[in-house]
Amino acid sequence: MSDKEVILISKEGISHPVKYEVCTISSTIRKILQEKFQEGISFEIELKQFNDEIIKKVIEYMEYKYRGDEEEEEFEVATDMSLELLIAADYLDI
């Protein structure tokens, strides 16, 4: 499965490709992919409730967590997106 990519689609309809292992950090996405849904076949997940900026940040975090590097600096979140990001993080369980 290592080469597989999953596409996350934002509110604006823009596709964001992410490595399969990276996005399964989110248990919500993992379940969506592993259940018998269309998404598990097409590997495209629509996250239309979140805009581009939020999706990008979410992916950035999942990649940060995937690297799991102890030396790396703390993950920064801009103040003006923290509310929406919190709701996205809650939804995706990350």
Binding site: Y61, K65, F75, V77, S82, L85, A89, I94
Partner: peptide, 18 residues
Amino acid sequence: TFIIPTLQSICISNISEN
């Protein structure tokens, strides 16, 4: 022992601090 905080807790501490 090294645990990366969840994105939720990062956001919440950011919000409370601000």
